[in-house]
Nucleic acid binder design. Structure first.
Lengths: 206, 206
DNA sequence: TAGATTGTTAATCGATTAACAATC
DNA sequence: TAGATTGTTAATCGATTAACAATC
């Protein structure tokens, strides 16, 4: 017990979490490894193997109970609490992110939104009022935020990154195409649909 | 030669493509495997290994010429042409996607945008006029589009998916949290920042 | 030349898969 | 009971890494 998960296992477990959350919303009570496989393209044997490393969560001939499996995976990933994150950029993308339920569903709370555009300060995106960009360091520190989401144009991305990192942020989600320079203890996750597409096209074309 | 790339290699090569494209925009001429590693968190030896499987693209003591490496990787991934894609949903997220240069930079062209909201039809997002949703099958077929991007709310996602698939789309990018049912010859790529975040937090907390 | 960085080897480790007995 | 699906084994394959000679 208590060994650190490998990167691969942790990544897969969080995908199972997503599938289970959605399946539950669709009114399902239980699910088989084959069904999870259909939605994730992860081999069904791999799924059973990942889960059985932590306990016997399923029933043979029946499948997995969704509620109890959700609880078990959350325990393994230690994601049971609420997490506060900060969003930089209240433009179209920032508004789309703030209004989405994609974070809220997993207990992730957008606790602060910043924009350098004064005309946006005070307006509401999602359920949060946009704060002055100058207040970023204080608010990030006060609320103990370690996750930042960058929804700013590429030319502003590095400046926002440096400000967030200086204030204590350790995990960044970059929705611009810019490359970000960060200290080695900060993780950057860049979401680039174009990159995924190039790679998807390769397999479609060959 | 001419063997199909493994999934892992193709995914990594497209990430190198992204880094090279950005580094070039920043005015750089050449880059080392270590620099690519810093931006991608892919081990530098792995990068050299991936590249040297296709030829000797680098210069010892110097690194890789960005322009020529870009050309080589594009040749390997066969992504030199223009690709037409369709976007469904002209809301905030759809507008953000259509205005971003993230696709255009890699030769991917948003050739059509659809929305079921009649009041949006005819308006311009990015550089494209929003078309009637009813025209989706005809336009997709006429323009030979095989890639669809879903920027619609979760409850509409399955219906839009079915319409796109019926019209011939084979690759889908899903920006909603919904699970999509598709035939086995259609690939779904779901982008879920919350899932990535849960997994990033695990490694931060342990 | 001296320093830097590639290309490549060799060794290890984790991921993937098929197969099937156990059992609900 | 009959059918379905888990839990687990065993075998294979690809990814990862350190190390270093080659060479720019």
């Amino acid at each position: 017990m208590a060994d650190r998960l490998t990167v691969g296992v942790a990544a897969r477990l969080s995908r199972y979490l997503q599938v289970l959350t959605q399946a539950k919303k669709m009114g399902k009570d239980r699910i088989s490894s084959q069904e999870i496989s259909d939605y994730t393209n992860i081999n069904a044997t791999q799924i059973r193997r990942d889960l059985s490393a932590f306990g016997k969560f399923g029933k043979r001939g029946v499948g997995y109970n969704i509620d109890s499996l959700l609880g078990e995976i959350r325990k393994i990933l230690r994601t049971q609490g609420q997490h506060n994150i900060a969003l930089v950029g209240a433009g179209r993308l920032g508004q789309a992110i703030a209004s989405s339920s994609i974070f809220a569903e997993h207990g992730i709370n957008i606790a602060a939104v910043f924009d350098t555009d004064e005309s946006k300060v005070g307006s509401t995106v999602g359920n949060v009022q946009v704060s002055e960009y100058a207040q970023l360091p204080d608010i990030i520190r006060d609320k103990n935020i370690i996750v930042g989401v960058l929804a700013v144009p590429a030319p502003s991305a590095q400046a926002a990154t440096s400000d967030l990192v200086r204030a204590g942020v350790k995990i960044l989600f970059n929705y611009s195409e810019a490359l970000l320079d960060v200290p080695s203890d900060v993780q950057v996750h860049t979401s680039n649909p174009a990159v995924e597409l190039l790679y998807a096209l390769y397999f479609h074309l060959t």
